[in-house]
Design a protein around this nucleic acid. Structure first.
Lengths: 168, 168
DNA sequence: TTGAATTTTCAAAAAATATTGAAAATATAT
DNA sequence: ATATATTTTCAATATTTTTTGAAAATTCAA
């Protein structure tokens, strides 16, 4: 397979992959493009490569910056802004986990705390099932939260050490 | 908070949560409803509770069955079909991980295998960056795949034992 | 300052996704 | 077998999400 074709496939699969994870196609594609680009790129470079509009490019770059996955780079003598993506995949994964934990898991756990305190008699099976379900989700969620904290703090690829420990 | 309100909040948050994870709102809401329901429910029960159409209900129940999260239950003397959700949250999580691994992670790893074999000279920095990126994603992905296998096979809540081991 | 280059915003349009509801298919009781 | 209840399908519709592109805002050099 030629490089050009391989790049196309990588970008388009990364985009499709992203949509299964609540990330929009373009955002994932821009990220993919920057991951495989040896040098920082401008908005215009990305527009050309991906055939997307200026507005779309701009909004998604900004979103990637919010996620901490892309950085603005200033090149001396260049008027335009350049962008680059973190290439260390372990750092990328940690950053995504960190953000999703903050945006999704933590608010969910807070909600479950409130819902657990529903009024009513636990001898009522409706109440019991509700409270039991909420409690068990909360319990698992809190444990997952802690495990992810450990993962986020890990300097090197956590899966390696993790596997060794688990097989011991 | 009253039970009725708590149920509503649980169902609606679970639905919103689902949409961040590539699951459609209704499917997540039906799942939530079944999780907190002490008894099996019929399609009509769900239509009434969630105010959704028969077709929508039917399609999403079937999808939940495909995911292995919901089961058809036959009650003696009842003409209608009843449905119930697995209540053990650890089993639910394992099932979701298992399915997503199969549907998303594994095909991605297969693609990366093919892309890694791109033609070209690694002294060309375009080629080098591409191959390096693909290889490092593949490496991490394969490790994650193995770790998830261990998790799926774990009988009891993996996070607990996992944390203990990690803190040792 | 002024003006050209560049970035950002956002209303409108397009595309993608989800939902409806009625007809068709299937299952079950008599 | 026939009638009735129930489930399934799917074209049409509605909703949500994404994308566009042109105008506004900003930046920066002269």
């Amino acid at each position: 397979m030629k490089l050009a074709e391989a790049k196309q496939q990588f970008i388009s699969s990364w985009g499709a992959f992203g949509t299964h994870w609540g990330i929009n196609r373009t955002m994932a594609q821009i990220h993919a493009l920057l991951l495989i680009s040896p040098d920082p790129m401008t908005q215009d470079d990305m527009m050309d490569e991906l055939n997307i509009s200026r507005g779309n490019t701009n909004m998604n770059i900004r979103e990637l910056i919010n996620w901490g996955l892309v950085d603005r780079v200033l090149l001396t003598g260049e008027r335009k802004e350049f962008f680059t993506a973190e290439k260390d995949i372990w750092k990328v994964v940690k950053q995504i986990v960190k953000e999703r934990k903050k945006r999704e898991l933590e608010p969910m756990l807070q909600l479950l705390d409130r819902l657990e305190e529903v009024e009513g008699d636990k001898r009522d099976k409706e109440v019991k099932t509700f409270v039991d379900t909420v409690s068990s989700i909360k319990k698992l969620g809190k444990q997952a939260d802690k495990t992810l904290d450990v993962m986020i703090r890990a300097e090197e690829n956590w899966f390696v050490g993790n596997l060794l420990k688990l097989f011991k």
